[in-house]
């Protein structure tokens, strides 16, 4: 054999890749407990966002979209603010979802409610993060949602497909990940994948367009 170095390099890369892949596949839900990514640094580091970060009080609440996850990483939360009103969507990607609405107070706090009794209490931090709790389906979960930009955010599509009332909600995270629930005649199920660029989604063979959801 001559010059084994390059082959060993490739092999090492392959091993690292396979190792990380198996780690990812086996620890899917453990991450929240081992290293909570968002709660680790609650106060000292306001992200130096290039967007003009508005001062927390006095100025009107800026229109923006926020996406994040619950601290236990079991569900996604997205909030869209517009004109002092807020629309939030809680979605675990399987069965539990809630659309919550309400007003944003001048100090950045908000209490959003849904028809089924779900409640979201949140507070805007530095204009680039919403921290709070959401009570859906009997449990209470803390969440953090960071300010983000298109195509991340909250999407909704309602239509009648083959005579079935369908209502889909999606949360697209800034890293491109997404969760969604599609409710057919009141029965929730994981939603098909949405193209965040165009909002196109195919439901039971029919093409729908999901639109950014606003209050």
């Amino acid at each position: 054999m001559k010059r084994p170095g390059p082959l060993l390099t490739l092999l090492a890369g392959l091993l690292v890749g396979v190792f990380m892949l198996s780690l990812n596949a086996t620890t899917g839900t453990r991450n929240a407990s081992s290293s909570p990514p968002t709660t680790a640094t609650p106060t000292p580091t306001p992200k130096s966002s290039p967007a003009p970060s508005p001062s927390p009080s006095k100025t009107p609440i800026p229109d923006a979209r926020y996406t994040g996850r619950t601290d236990d990483d079991s569900a996604s939360v997205a909030v869209t603010l517009r004109g002092g009103k807020a629309l939030a969507y809680y979605c675990d990607g399987r069965a539990e979802e809630a659309w919550l609405k309400g007003d944003v107070n001048d100090d950045g706090t908000m209490r959003l409610t849904a028809e089924d009794g779900s409640v979201l209490n949140g507070a805007l931090k530095e204009g680039n993060r919403i921290r709070g709790t959401v009570d859906v389906g009997g449990g209470s979960q803390a969440f953090t949602a960071d300010r983000t930009t298109k195509p991340a955010g909250l999407y909704r599509a309602t239509a009648t497909v083959n005579g079935t009332e369908t209502d889909g909600g999606w949360i697209v995270q800034p890293d491109g990940g997404q969760v969604g629930i599609l409710t057919r005649d009141g029965r929730p199920a994981p939603a098909p994948r949405l193209d965040p660029g165009t909002g196109a989604v195919t439901v039971d063979g029919q093409r729908l367009t999901a639109r950014p959801a606003t209050p």
Binding site: L23, N24, T27, G28, R30, N31, S34, S35, P37, T38, A40, T41, T45, K47, R69, D73, Q173, D175, G177, Q178, V179
Partner: peptide
Amino acid sequence: AGTVFNLAGFS
């Protein structure tokens, strides 16, 4: 999959 593990110290 959307989510994977993270290292402490990174947001």
